[in-house]
Lab assay of single mutants.
Amino acid sequence: MEVRTIKVFTTVDNINLHTQVVDMSMTYGQQFGPTYLDGADVTKIKPHNSHEGKTFYVLPNDDTLRVEAFEYYHTTDPSFLGRYMSALNHTKKWKYPQVNGLTSIKWADNNCYLATALLTLQQIELKFNPPALQDAYYRARAGEAANFCALILAYCNKTVGELGDVRETMSYLFQHANLDSCKRVLNVVCKTCGQQQTTLKGVEAVMYMGTLSYEQFKKGVQIPCTCGKQATKYLVQQESPFVMMSAPPAQYELKHGTFTCASEYTGNYQCGHYKHITSKETLYCIDGALLTKSSEYKGPITDVFYKENSYTTTIK
């Protein structure tokens, strides 16, 4: 009895394709271990004539594949690729409408935090270190965002349907971005203890939790000093293409032309909904596939993004 075979390709990165001759009487799992086709788990399936010449994702289970996976995804987590594939199996079914010149995501599976993050990423200057993220990001900007969303979920250790947080998501993504040249110098002034300067680099240099107003941050924000008295913390120097200011959701007025974009969060910790506000020729609110415009805006804002380049204080 002759062994019926077909020729397929296996890959971990969709760049390096490895030619395989597979036995049609055995499952993919018996031949390769966990195997995925377009995100779908085909591990328990036997090869079919229609699979001839198709590319299958496999887990990096030998040295060659491990090197290829690390170079593309910059992670050695053995569960990463499987999590990416199972997320992709959902995100490829989502709709990605162009809204006001940006790629958004039609609401499904509690994905409003991903839509808000995706919209924000198209408006701030950011370059990702893992080629996987950078490639998928370019495709997302062009309207094909399924891979990018699935990668975000995998890097953030999230599953489809789980509630997510924009600030946490951005923080994970910033860790995989090139923020080497970003720098922030802060000064804390206390009447009792004097003053202390701190220099922050990388992710810490672009994120701040405690106030939404970048102007206020430049002037000074009140913080408790270690001595128990009130101290003032203010920005001395900022070198970065953008800054992200966050605070627990509270009524906040966004003035046209003073910011790049913002995240609105309605609801409580267990259950809520994100919308995205962007400042173009007027203010726009993007909620999944829905767009509304207004000249002014007041609502429960939790993150505001500002364009920056270089700032030095005039406070002496």
Rank of each mutant, 00 (worst) to 15 (best):
T116N: 11
Y84G: 01
Y208Q: 07
L173P: 01
M207W: 02
K7N: 09
T10D: 02
H90L: 11
F174G: 00
Q123K: 01
T5V: 15
D38F: 11
L200T: 10
K293E: 10
Q216R: 04
C285W: 06
A150M: 01
N111I: 05
K191G: 08
T278L: 13
M209E: 15
T5Q: 12
T314L: 12
V166R: 00
G33T: 01
H276K: 06
Q238F: 03
H276Y: 14
H48E: 10
Y172C: 14
T226I: 05
K92T: 13
F242H: 04
L291V: 14
R167I: 01
Y214T: 04
S171V: 06
S181N: 11
L291G: 12
Y155G: 01
V42P: 00
Q134W: 03
K158S: 05
D135H: 15
K92I: 09
T266P: 09
H176E: 02
T199S: 11
K54Q: 12
Q222E: 14
A154K: 01
F128G: 01
C193D: 00
P300E: 15
T278I: 10
L88C: 10
K298R: 14
H90D: 08
S279F: 00
T75S: 00
N309F: 11
Y72H: 10
F242G: 00
R83V: 03
S86P: 03
E264N: 02
F9L: 10
T292G: 07
Y265C: 01
Q134T: 11
R66Q: 06
L17K: 15
N157W: 00
H48S: 11
D303F: 00
A146I: 04
D77M: 02
Y265W: 08
Y265V: 08
A247L: 05
N268I: 11
F56S: 00
Q196F: 13
Y306N: 06
A115I: 00
S104G: 12
I301H: 06
Q196R: 12
K298V: 14
D41Q: 10
D77S: 07
D13I: 01
C190M: 05
T75W: 00
I277V: 15
N111V: 01
L212R: 12
Y269Q: 12
K219I: 09
R184T: 05
H256T: 10
N268R: 11
L119D: 13
Y138E: 15
V42I: 06
L290F: 14
K106N: 12
V58S: 01
T282V: 11
I152Q: 03
T120E: 05
I301R: 06
G288P: 03
V21D: 15
S246Y: 04
K46E: 11
Y269E: 14
V12S: 07
V206M: 06
T116P: 01
Q237K: 12
I301Q: 05
Q175C: 08
G29R: 03
Y284T: 06
K298A: 15
A145N: 01
Q123S: 04
S295R: 12
H74F: 03
G82F: 13
V189Y: 09
L291I: 13
T260H: 06
S263Y: 08
K106F: 14
Q123H: 04
T282G: 09
D62W: 04
G161V: 06
H74M: 09
K280S: 13
T159F: 06
F259I: 05
L37V: 07
A69E: 11
K218T: 07
Y214A: 04
M207K: 07
H74Q: 13
G164K: 03
V8P: 02
S295M: 14
L290D: 13
V206E: 03
A289E: 15
C182M: 07
V8S: 01
Q216E: 04
A40P: 04
Y297C: 07
G53P: 00
C190S: 04
Y96S: 03
I223D: 15
V203T: 12
Y36E: 01
A177Q: 02
I105G: 04
A40H: 13
F128Y: 07
Y284V: 11
S295W: 10
E52D: 11
T211R: 06
K92G: 06
T75P: 01
E2G: 11
F70T: 14
F80W: 04
S295A: 14
I286R: 07
C112W: 03
T232K: 08
Q195T: 11
T169H: 00
F305Y: 04
V189H: 08
M245R: 05
G220W: 02
K44P: 11
T103H: 04
E239C: 11
S213Q: 04
I315H: 09
Q31M: 13
Y214K: 05
Y311L: 08
M26W: 09
H48R: 10
I152F: 05
Y155R: 00
Y57E: 01
K44E: 09
T169R: 02
I301T: 06
I45H: 10
E144A: 10
P248Q: 14
H51Y: 04
E125C: 10
Y269L: 15
K92N: 14
Y284A: 06
A117K: 05
A262R: 08
P241W: 01
K219P: 01
L59N: 05
G202P: 03
I223P: 07
T278M: 15
N16I: 14
G82K: 06
T282Q: 13
G210L: 07
A231L: 03
A205C: 04
